[in-house]
Design a protein around this nucleic acid. Sequence first.
DNA 1: ACCTGAACACCGTTCAAGT
DNA 2: ACCTGAACACCGTTCAAGT
Lengths: 200, 200
Amino acid sequence: MARRSDHSREEIREMALAAAEEIVSEHGHTGLSARKVASAIGYTVGTLYLVFDNLDDLILQVNGRTLDRLHAQMVKEQARYRDPRKRLLQLGHTYIHFADKDPHCWEMIFERRSPQAQKMPEWFREKVARMFSLVESGLEPLAEHQSSQEIAQAARALWSGVHGICILAITGKLDIAGVESVQDLTQSLMSNYLRGFTST
Amino acid sequence: MARRSDHSREEIREMALAAAEEIVSEHGHTGLSARKVASAIGYTVGTLYLVFDNLDDLILQVNGRTLDRLHAQMVKEQARYRDPRKRLLQLGHTYIHFADKDPHCWEMIFERRSPQAQKMPEWFREKVARMFSLVESGLEPLAEHQSSQEIAQAARALWSGVHGICILAITGKLDIAGVESVQDLTQSLMSNYLRGFTST
DNA sequence: ACCTGAACACCGTTCAAGT
DNA sequence: ACCTGAACACCGTTCAAGT
């Protein structure tokens, strides 16, 4: 057992988040528990409550980090293309790819823990908003005749669509096999929507 | 406490499912527990395990019933229109409306309980497939130049899109207010996709 | 035969007590 | 000051024992 000032508050926090990430990544959110995180970092359960408000708080922090990783990957992969249309489609593909590689962490973001509709803190809302901004920016060069409101709505519709494919595929409700089919479906959704959207 | 043959196996089963539905509907899936269901129907926990394999089995049964209610409502509401396009759009609206009225039951269908990717039983897969069929049937009159494979894929893309809007709206990640905005977004997604899809 | 209720191995969360 | 570890009120699941 670790004692006294073996680690600073910040160090414990970091260790706990890393341990939680690994547990979720391997066993899903149902495999996560305060006791498991604590024992993974060599501390007692009580210690976690000195660093986090509760387990939901810890989960929210992990989710924030997952969103960070996802965002970074989307930005990076997008940069591979110059063609605006390809750049936008790449966002969708990266999203699917991320969810496919680390389904458990990705799922946890959209899992509802608290009974009451808890308000998400501002820092978390911003991480989500950042994702929409990425899609909006990608849409802009393709939508010269549309207002910024229309673009904002289109970004939400598109991201929702890609997200829906993702979640149905992961929970096995789409009845299609392989990541490729999922990517095909994403491609179909995005390109048809775009054709409709830009032909106005 | 109920004793002996106060109720048949079937009656206990029905009582348990009804009780579980009410608990989930009111307090969400996190509020559901075997003990609560048992006490709500006046039996002990052990009794539930004579009627269901385990809690996941009970949840799957409840989810099946939710899918039945949703399907019935979609069929019914769709019948209000004759115009093929209106009929199809109505499917999306009914889906959103259902999720808005009973978010907790609806959410539970897409919640991942078991750690391992459990195979859904055939009877459940069929209930999901039935939903796709509804969308495919709605699409057919609008897609005279498309193959049945293309229609099948379009149905999946469309339903995924509507579903994605639904789940992001319910988990508060869309950052828009009111059901109306969600219905607007659904309308935008479906009509733009359809315009793209039918213009091929 | 049908159901109980206690037991087992887990939870999240708190907080007096130890070092 | 920092962390423990026991306690509380819950879980899902099982199964010998009662009626």
